[in-house]
């Protein structure tokens, strides 16, 4: 019974995607869109497969992934660290809170020109932009999770002889883990988006750069390929994080 409901859900979910591809193909087949503007889906797919085997394209993927992971990793360390500190210490909180309040709604991409001027056109400016964008969701959800930890959990650990300085890592961080990981997931998707955009705005390699080069020469097929690649990367990374999450949070209710 449950299996059947699930199957019908999956079928329903595939429907709009299949429909989209069908309309896409139909637009070309019936001559509404010239192939120069909208290449047929089969052609895009073939090109994607061929490009994934292409050494140059693989290097572009590698460049994008390197910036993505470097930025995301720094954002996680900073975000979790500052978030925990702000939850644990009223003094840190008093300083961090207003600064975060000002910086969180700031459109970070506007800082990109300044980062280019200060850090140059290489990896550093792009990684910094990724950090700036991914940091806040991670910081905020860590802070939120850490300040919501049940008081009696902390008391139980203290009574069992946990010294005060260990409480933060032995109780607060693990108890805030669901919230921290939610923040990380948001941060990861943002990292994907931001690294791609930064590469589009100015770069000499990476997936975003592939898209811009194709756009300059009006090669529509090559514009779709990097876009699909970055979405696939996003989905795969998201899936990996989801798997990590269900492993780390196996004890928590309703993962």
């Amino acid at each position: 019974m449950k299996g059947r409901v699930l199957t019908s859900d999956v079928l329903l979910g595939i429907a709009p995607i299949a429909l989209m591809i069908a309309v896409w193909q139909a637009l070309i087949s019936f001559g509404y869109a010239p192939a120069t503007l909208l290449p047929p889906p089969g052609q895009v797919f073939m090109r994607l497969v061929r490009q994934l085997g292409n050494n140059e394209y693989q290097q572009d993927i590698a460049a994008t992934l390197f910036r993505l992971f470097a930025g995301f990793a720094i954002a996680v360390v900073l975000g979790v660290g500052i978030g925990l500190a702000a939850a644990a210490s009223p003094a840190v909180n008093a300083v961090v809170r207003p600064i975060v309040r000002v910086l969180a709604p700031l459109p970070k991409v506007a800082l990109y020109p300044a980062l280019l001027l200060l850090l140059g056109f290489g990896h550093e400016s792009k990684i910094t932009l990724v950090v700036a964008d991914a940091l806040f969701p991670i910081l905020l959800s860590t802070y939120y999770g850490a300040s919501m930890v049940e008081q009696k959990l902390i008391w139980s650990a203290m009574a069992a002889g946990t010294p005060p300085r260990q409480i933060l890592f032995k109780v607060v961080l693990p108890a805030a883990m669901p919230s921290v990981l939610t923040g990380c997931r948001i941060g990861l998707v943002i990292s994907c988006i931001v690294v791609f955009l930064a590469e589009m705005i100015t770069s000499t390699d990476g997936l975003g750069h592939v898209l811009v080069t194709a756009a300059r020469t009006f090669r529509a097929v090559d514009m779709f390929v990097p876009l699909i690649t970055i979405s696939l990367l996003g989905l795969i990374l998201n899936g990996l994080l989801q798997w990590l999450r269900s492993y780390l949070l196996r004890g928590f209710p309703e993962v």
């Binding site: 995607i17 931001v194 955009l197 589009m200 990367l233």
Partner: peptide, 9 residues
Amino acid sequence: ITYPVPKAA
């Protein structure tokens, strides 16, 4: 599927 697509891209 569309979530990780950078819209501005």
